[in-house]
Each structure stands twice: as structure tokens, then as C-alpha cells.
Amino acid sequence: MSNQIERFQDPGLPEHVHRNADVDPRAAKRAEQQIAILFLLSAVGTILTIVSYIYIKSTTFFYLPVMGRTNLQQLLLGIGLTAATLFIGLGAIQWAKKLMPDEEVIAERHEFRSEEVDREELVETFKERAGASGIGRRSLIKRSLGLSLGLVGLSPLVLLRDTGPLPGKFLNTTNWAAGTRLLRDPDGQPILASDIEVGAVTQVLPELSAGMERTLENTGKDAVLLLRLRPEDFNLDPERLSWTHEGIIAFSKICTHMGCAVALYEQQTHHLLCPCHQSTFDVTRGAKVIFGPAARPLPQLAITVNADGYLIAKQPFTLPIGPSFWERNSSNG
């Protein structure tokens, strides 16, 4: 055995095999006709599109298996457009495959690296040109230019300042205050404790002081869920228990994870579930997190009734509601 390892040799491009259409003029003619038919089908598609746009009523709906209730015009426009484009594509590809030369050709690659002389000349030219600017010698210019270039980027940043106000206290506060009446969402009616049945869950919003508007921004932090359990179901410390009223308990509806509305209530287990990432809160234990990524219970709103028997807030939320933020102070819970 020789010491030299022999590798397999590249046999080179395989011989070109002629297609039917290359050698048989009749096959070529057939291919031509096929391709023409494909292009004509595309034209039919365009006509279908135009006709359905003009002549089909846009309010015609009908029922299709799988697709369900379907708008006839949108469907036909789509089918027309499909045919109009798809068949041009199929025709062109067929043309390339059947009739255009299918012999593979070889092209050489070039190396990307420039010739050594070019690189050297570049360096020389660059040095010479840079020297002409004097940037190497004039350090005062170099430094001051460096400083101003570093600073110039600040102006667009400063100019963006007015994109929004500072957060201020907004994230820390809600519109709930001592004595605020609970209004049923969406009808806005005040609620008698006796209106709420055991097992029921109601979305409520605070009654706003005169002149204040109910905005989405407010709803986004004021939304509260009202639930009624049997008082013996609760497993709360005395203070939290005193925040309930005859089994009625109120929590912020805004998930403490990322702010979705906590909307699903399982009556049997007394669990509140956030559909976004399935954080689950146990109502009997003050909406303690029992599952999912949320790290904090839903803040509880202390409630009681006023002289007319309507449900009111005893005090504002003692904690910021909703997802975390850097300035959020957790020292009281």
C-alpha cells in the first residue's frame, strides 16, 4: 500500500440529457400549447375578478361547509385573483422547464480579497489624504470635533421628551376613595348589597366626581370585580375580613402580572383566572396567587354600605393596582 492517500476524483458535470421537447418537434409544440393554455387561464381569472367586482352584490352571504358563512363577492374576487396570478406563474415555470435551454453552465468565482498592491496603495492614499486634513497634527480640532459629534445625538433624544407626560402618581393611584359608590358596568347603576347573589360576579367601576369623564385610561386602573361568597368560605385575617361586606368582596380586575383583565371565575373553587398567562387567584384567601407567573395577589378594595344601603368603598386601594413598575413601593404589602 502506498503512503499517499488517494481520494475519490470529481467526475465532472454529468452529461446533459435531452428532454422530449428538445428532440421531438411535436412534443415541443404540445408543450407550447400547454403553456399558452396556462396563460389563458390567468386571463380568465382576471375577467372573473372584474365581473365579480361589478356584478355581484357585496351583501350576498351563503353557507359553505368548513368555511361557514361566506361573502360571495369576496370569495369570487379571491378565486379570480388566485387564478390570474397562479396561472401566469405556472405558465412561466413550465416554459422554463420544458422549452428553455436546460443545460447547466459553469461560471468561475473570483476571490474577494483585493490584490496586495491595491491594499497597500489604499493605506498609503488614506494616510496621505488624512495627513492633508491635518487631523493627526491638530489635536484641538480632533478633540473638539469628537466632543460635538458625541453630543449632537442628544438633541433628537431631548426633542422626544414631549412624546408623553411624566408618570407622576398616575400608576400609584386610582379613582377609588373613601365613600365612592360602586357602579355596575356597563349600566352605571349603584348597587344594593342585597342585589348581589351568592356565586355572582359583577364588574364595577367607581362613581366619578362631577365633571370627570370615564376614559379607557381610568377604566384600565379602576376596574373592580365584585364577588359574593358565603361568609364562612373566607379564610382571611380580621383586617381583610373587615374589608368585606356580608360575603361580598372586591378585587382589582387588572392582573398584577401584565395587566390583562382577570375575567374568569370558577364558582366551585372560588378561583379567578387570568386568560392571558393563566395566573390563578384564590378569592377565599384574598386573591392569593396559586398558579401562574403573577407574583402578587390582586389588591383588595375595602367595601361597606352607606346609609342608603348602596355599596361604597371604605378607603382607596392601599396598594398600586396592576403590573409592576420600578417606582412601585411594596413596603405596605
Binding site: 379571491g78 397562479l86 412561466a92
Partner: peptide
Amino acid sequence: AKAGGFFFVVFGVTAFLGA
């Protein structure tokens, strides 16, 4: 021809899905 044709095929397939 192949690439140009393929553009129309992709368009056709997307239009069909949209329809």
C-alpha cells in the same frame, strides 16, 4: 422565468388562502 413565475405562484397561493 423561474423566479418571476415563482413570484406569481406565491401570490396565487397567498390569494387563495386569503379567499
